[in-house]
Each structure stands twice: as structure tokens, then as C-alpha cells.
Simulated assay, not measured.
Amino acid sequence: MRKILYIILTATALLSVAACSEDTLEAYDTSTSALNIARGTVFGSAADYPESYSFNAYFLGGKVTDYTLQIPVRLQGVIDYDRDRHFGVMISEAESEGITDGSPVVSFDSKQVFRSGMYQDTLRATIHVDKMDSETTYKMRLKLIPGDDFTVGVPEYQYVDVQFTKNLTIAPAFWENNSKLSKITYSARKCAVFLEISGITDPEWVDDGSSVILDYWISLCKQWFEQHEEYDSNGNRIYFE
């Protein structure tokens, strides 16, 4: 069976024969295999390995009903080239808010695959945007569960926190950053339709000067509300103006 030792990048000394300084490569104990959720710059760039995950569902681009988080999981120990291995995942309810095991807002396989020949694979969890309400700020802690294939790794990398919401009560920065939008009376519903039509994913988006595209999006939003009768909480018809 062809196997090789994987070298893990660590922030602190991890059971090595000699103490090492921060951000060094260390050979880990090869008698066991463990997994760590790869988060933080010790694993690479902050863009690839964020410490935690946070998003507003309205900024996923267009009309998204399901959004799958892909969280990197790093091997600690020995690469197995001959067989897939498996790792367990659960929601830690004590550190979560608005989310419990079995919640319709999130789904994932409690037993996930770590593929053969890999030193890093992916934990996948799907957020069902259409099941979210527009008031709750959801907080979810996903934890690795040791099993037959993997023991417990570094304690601080056995979990990851995810915070998400679907709320536009407060106007995003881009609404105020663009003169043509800022002249339109803000409402969460107007903003939601605008985001669906424009596909904008950056809350800080600023018109780069090509006002033609912004004018086009605004015209489509006006048409949408003219063709769809919607009313605010006071019973007033909503128009994009």
C-alpha cells in the first residue's frame, strides 16, 4: 500500500520531537491520522482559508435558493493513495443560534468523504436560502467528529463558525454610494429586486462611471414593480422611485 507522510503547517508546536517557531513545517506523529478544518493564514492565504464564514444571502448573486459552503479540511498524518476515508460532521448547538441539527435551513452529510490521494479535501454544507427568514442572524458552529478513519486533531481547528442572514432592513453601502440609486427611496424589497436583476455580489459596489448599465438595471426594476403589484407594511403600492 503506497503511502507518504504529509507535512502539516502549524501555528504552534504539535507533538513534535523538538519545539518549533511559529509558521514552520513540522512532521506530525505518523502513527495516527487526524483532520483539521483549515482556517487562518497558518494554512495559506486569508482569502482561501478564512477564520470564519459570514455572508448575507442577498449578495450571493441573482436569485439563489441553495448555497453550498465548501470548507477546506486538511490532513494531519499520512496520505492514503489506496482508499477513500470518511469523517463525521455535526452542528454544535451550544455554540449556534437559530440552527439546530435537523434545521430546514441547512443540510449536510453527517459522514463525509476524504478522497484517496488527497492531503486536503472539502467539508460541504448547503444553506437553503429559501428557508431562511428575513429577521434572524443565523450562527452555526460545525464540528469534526472523530471516527474509524481519523482521530481528533488540533483542538482549535476542530470547528468552524458560520454566520449568515437574509436581511436588507438597513441600506447596503452601495445604495448610498451611487448617486442615481441614492435618489430612490430605499426599501428592503426594492433592494432585493435590484440585487436579483443586477447580480451584484459586493455590498460596497460603486458605479465605475459606465452609467448605462446602472440606468439599464434601474429601468428593469421600474418595469418589474409596474408589472408586479406589491405593497409595503402600510399598504402603499411599491414603485421603484
Results as ranks from 00 to 15, higher is better:
residue 153 G to L: 02
residue 127 I to T: 03
residue 127 I to V: 15
residue 129 V to Y: 05
residue 158 Q to M: 09
residue 164 F to L: 11
residue 165 T to E: 13
residue 146 P to M: 08
residue 171 A to T: 10
residue 134 S to F: 11
residue 168 L to A: 08
residue 162 V to H: 00
residue 162 V to K: 05
residue 167 N to E: 05
residue 148 D to A: 12
residue 131 K to F: 03
residue 161 D to E: 12
residue 154 V to I: 15
residue 163 Q to V: 13
residue 149 D to Q: 08
residue 159 Y to F: 12
residue 142 L to H: 01
residue 140 M to E: 00
residue 163 Q to K: 15
residue 164 F to Y: 07
residue 150 F to R: 02
residue 154 V to C: 12
residue 127 I to A: 02
residue 166 K to F: 03
residue 139 K to P: 00
residue 150 F to E: 01
residue 153 G to S: 05
residue 151 T to E: 13
residue 133 D to M: 01
residue 146 P to R: 07
residue 128 H to T: 00
residue 126 T to W: 07
residue 130 D to L: 02
residue 154 V to S: 15
residue 128 H to A: 08
residue 164 F to H: 09
residue 142 L to S: 06
residue 132 M to N: 06
residue 144 L to S: 00
residue 135 E to H: 09
residue 158 Q to Y: 06
residue 134 S to M: 13
residue 127 I to C: 02
residue 152 V to S: 15
residue 169 T to E: 13
residue 156 E to N: 15
residue 147 G to V: 09
residue 128 H to S: 08
residue 168 L to Q: 06
residue 152 V to Y: 11
residue 129 V to H: 00
residue 172 P to E: 03
residue 164 F to A: 08
residue 166 K to A: 14
residue 126 T to D: 11
residue 156 E to V: 15
residue 138 Y to G: 04
residue 143 K to C: 06
residue 155 P to I: 06
residue 160 V to N: 08
residue 170 I to E: 15
residue 150 F to A: 00
residue 136 T to D: 02
residue 144 L to P: 03
residue 130 D to F: 07
residue 129 V to Q: 04
residue 160 V to P: 01
residue 173 A to V: 10
residue 148 D to R: 13
residue 128 H to Y: 03
residue 164 F to Q: 10
residue 152 V to T: 14
residue 141 R to D: 01
residue 137 T to Q: 11
residue 163 Q to I: 13
residue 152 V to L: 15
residue 141 R to V: 12
residue 171 A to H: 12
residue 129 V to D: 01
residue 173 A to S: 14
residue 170 I to M: 14
residue 144 L to N: 02
residue 145 I to E: 09
residue 137 T to E: 12
residue 150 F to I: 05
residue 158 Q to G: 15
residue 164 F to P: 09
residue 143 K to H: 05
residue 161 D to V: 11
residue 148 D to N: 12
residue 144 L to H: 02
residue 163 Q to E: 15
residue 143 K to T: 05
residue 172 P to T: 05
residue 158 Q to C: 08
residue 158 Q to L: 06
residue 127 I to L: 04
residue 126 T to H: 09
residue 166 K to G: 04
residue 147 G to P: 05
residue 153 G to V: 09
residue 134 S to D: 14
residue 142 L to Y: 05
residue 148 D to V: 13
residue 151 T to K: 11
residue 149 D to C: 08
residue 136 T to F: 00
residue 159 Y to Q: 09
residue 154 V to K: 14
residue 136 T to E: 04
residue 162 V to A: 07
residue 159 Y to A: 14
residue 141 R to F: 01
residue 173 A to F: 09
residue 152 V to I: 12
residue 162 V to W: 02
residue 161 D to H: 10
residue 150 F to H: 01
residue 169 T to K: 12
residue 131 K to S: 11
residue 138 Y to R: 04
residue 135 E to Q: 14
residue 131 K to Q: 14
residue 136 T to C: 00
residue 160 V to Y: 08
residue 136 T to K: 02
residue 172 P to D: 04
residue 153 G to Y: 01
residue 140 M to L: 10
residue 128 H to M: 04
residue 159 Y to P: 00
residue 157 Y to D: 07
residue 166 K to Y: 05
residue 174 F to L: 10
residue 138 Y to A: 04
